[in-house]
Design a protein around this nucleic acid. Sequence first.
DNA 1: CCTTTCACTGGTCAGGCTGCCCACTGAAAA
DNA 2: TTTTCAGTGGGCAGCCTGACCAGTGAAAGG
Lengths: 163, 163
Amino acid sequence: MAGRGIDRLDGRIIGLLAREPRIGVLEMSRRLGVARGTAQARLDRLQSNGVIRGFGPEVDPAALGYPVTAFATLEIRQGQGADVRAHLATVPEVLELHTTTGTGDMLCRLVARSNADLQRVIDRVVGFDGIVRAATAIVMENPVPLRIIPLVEQAAEDSTGHD
Amino acid sequence: MAGRGIDRLDGRIIGLLAREPRIGVLEMSRRLGVARGTAQARLDRLQSNGVIRGFGPEVDPAALGYPVTAFATLEIRQGQGADVRAHLATVPEVLELHTTTGTGDMLCRLVARSNADLQRVIDRVVGFDGIVRAATAIVMENPVPLRIIPLVEQAAEDSTGHD
DNA sequence: CCTTTCACTGGTCAGGCTGCCCACTGAAAA
DNA sequence: TTTTCAGTGGGCAGCCTGACCAGTGAAAGG
């Protein structure tokens, strides 16, 4: 654990990076109106802090041929959690998995080639002994795609106010 | 709509980029054992295809001071969908929003500074006329963080088999 | 069987950026 | 007052990028 927070300059760096990821440190320093060394140091710190985890490519499952997304709530048999986790990790169509409080025990995000193919994916997901019940919700629209900038801006404001 | 699929070389490119995002086209071509122009052309194609959306920084909400994640299922009053979407888009703690089939009408991912703070976030989310009911599940563990590589590999295998 | 097309190769070139170094400044903390 | 630290502005060599080009091999088309 490291980064207690970020200031406005950090926020601007992240925003800039989000808008134009291909940008270099030099160009970044020019846009930000700071010295190159400063931009470099800030960026290094954000990365070692863990605030910026990396710059991995964002791959669109739809473009890969998996246009259908769904969320499945799973109910697990007592004590089978670890096995179920391991099982789900082997299914490529399981994009993420969370254990949760509430009615279900786990929530996972799935993708499939079609609604018909989703059946195959779900069969594979729930075709495992430890899973008692599954409820699936197919995603129709995605009005707010995964985003972080608004939160970054709020975190930057909430900080001491330094620039 | 564009990319019908990807071949093995594309898959290796994405995998390489995921492992070492800072890598350049030249180094990439060396690792892949192809000419630089080829690597460049493939990468360009993946991006214009929309398979690779971008290289935005991956920001960790926890490092920003938001270690609590939750999923909320929302039930919407008939005809209020658009208003609710617009409302949720203004809440920074709403990281993503989907409209779904199933018991709820919408599913959103939330983050908060603490379990106590989550109450504030939920109040803000559901404190809107069009929302009839909300069910929240707090995330305890995240055994499978958002991933795409296994799917990329499968898509690459499923393709014609070209390299 | 010949020709066109296309992806890939391997090479060159100038310009620009990165990583690294340094001395200096100003502000805050000790 | 002294120390510490972030930031500034500058310089340097090395490497990479983007652009370009001629040549090759395979597949598709005539």
